[in-house]
Design a protein around this nucleic acid. Structure first.
Lengths: 294, 294
DNA sequence: TATCGGATATACAAAAATTTATGGATAAAG
DNA sequence: CTTTATCCATAAATTTTTGTATATCCGATA
């Protein structure tokens, strides 16, 4: 019952789940369809569960398989992190470091910092994971993360980079066509840009928002903060964004300045296990210094 | 360079690290020494690092190996969690659930709750991980954790069980021999029981402590909170403990009641991936109800 | 309706990995 | 100073795993 299961079976399982077929899994793993098929059968016998329903048009994953999938994904992420760690053993600062950031940070903030990093450590390979889902460090999909919340207790090394002020902004052309609001209440007369679905993230970070938050507030909705920013810059309406992103742009005007008392703490975070890794630590310190300087 | 590495090699690597020898690893994995040896060689070649130094008395792990170890351990923990999840697929409430708790909770608080759980769900197998190192959920060494701090972000399901009041206590025999302190300052005249090394945990949870905390405060030191409690109960001196643990014991007297304004939030926590698992959810809710009732 | 592409299942041969057996070398115990 | 118990390395034998080739089924498409 508790016998050890060959970890390769989990690998094949993951491939089938992600590819949707034995044949597809065989392609990505460099194996063959009969082999993968045998692995699945063997795993099902070992776990004593049914993972896939065999239809004559292909494999369909069962509920159990879907439940096991995130675990297998974590194993894969961890395996990848082993390879990364092993690549970083040499003398210099080389190998690859995986950095996870939100979309806005990845597109608007980080690139110039990465340019400096590239110049300082030319042998370094940087993999940028751009995602607004903050699971990365937990699942070891990344070595270093730049996030808008303080990470958990002791399992992570964390460094507070600074605070990002948020504000209401709009493009000059929009404000030329509409009278600028003077109070928060006036906003209801305007075209507002905001989220489409209320994520946990938004729920946790907008307690101090000056009005009840609901998607119906917004006429232009997107869950991509980048798309929101692009709409704002295109003059669609009034939106919320980080002040630093538009401070230098004379076309973008602050609306109701000071009315949105909302700021986000920015944390640079790293897995505890990596804090003694010279390369990771170097990148961590470099990012910390470069971002804090802004 | 980025070619997939057989996950079995990581498994063998972990076994060698934990057993200290190829032969030992072969024993625990049910394999043989030449096989494990070949796996290590193969892994070293694949990762292009030296993992062990071959001495004629055995294998000695390199720094790189030590760095990779926690990752391999996480893979193992995840693999184990897959097996647990698979065992819980049936109709009833069966299979095994792994619960991680601190020493004090595991010894002083949880047992009666587990007795009720056992009575309600006789088919359930409970694995109790008793440890004061709070990595368990992160590494998936446990399905459910009962901890004294709020878990991180959204990757966990968390439920606040209640608040545990802390207080100074001493055994009656101790107080009969020494005049009871009337102020916090008087404590310096007493035999105090406390921690030996300042852990992160203590540092984070004692900001409101009425005096500067340092190990030199204590004459009887232990990092085991259970041992501290036992010393307190044996009349060694004055110590801090959860009020609920000694409230029913007429031999243990509250010292300086109300002077220690310190309480701990108790959180029941579960991995997000498990929240749709019927068995885990049942145990989670059961523990939540039973513990909140106290 | 016939055909093509893509899917799984199966049989058998080929390849690969594991086990068995053995030897040498070291350290501890009698 | 043996004896014993470990440890790892190596080579031959064997088992296990994998790959190839083929059959069959389904659905889309002309």
């Amino acid at each position: 019952m508790d016998k050890a299961i060959n970890w390769t079976l989990y690998h094949s399982f993951l491939a089938v789940m992600e590819q949707g077929s034995l044949s597809g899994a065989a392609r990505v793993t460099g194996s063959t369809q009969p082999t993968i098929g045998r692995h699945i059968t063997e795993l099902e016998k070992a776990l004593n569960v049914s993972l896939f329903i065999r239809t004559q048009t292909g494999f369909v994953a069962t509920d159990v398989a879907h439940e096991l999938l995130p675990h297998a994904q974590q194993m894969a992420a961890t395996a990848a992190s082993i390879q990364r760690s092993a690549q970083r053993v040499g003398e210099g600062i080389s190998g690859s470091v995986r950095i996870s950031v939100s979309e806005v940070v990845g597109v608007e903030i980080l690139p110039p910092v990465l340019a400096k990093l590239r110049h300082t450590y030319p042998e370094l390979v940087i993999e940028l994971v751009v995602s607004d889902a903050p699971h990365d460090l937990l699942y070891r999909e990344a070595d270093i993360a730049l996030r808008m919340f303080r990470p958990t207790q002791n399992a992570f090394v964390a460094r507070l980079i600074g605070q990002l002020e948020l504000g209401f902004y709009a493009h000059r052309t929009y404000l030329n066509q509409h009278s600028a609001p003077r109070t928060v209440a006036d906003l209801s007369q305007h075209t507002l840009i905001g989220f489409d679905t209320m994520s946990d993230y938004i729920r946790n970070h907008t307690a101090a928002f000056p009005m009840a938050l609901d998607r119906t507030l917004f006429q232009y909705r997107s869950d991509s903060s980048l798309a929101q920013l692009a709409m704002l810059r295109a003059g669609v309406g009034i939106g919320v964004c980080q002040s630093g992103l538009v401070a230098d742009d004379p076309e973008i005007i602050s609306v109701l300045p000071g009315q949105l008392a909302l700021s986000l703490d920015m944390w640079l975070t790293m897995h505890e296990d990596l804090k003694r890794n010279r390369v990771c630590k170097t990148v961590f310190d470099f990012l910390g210094a470069a971002l804090a300087a802004d």
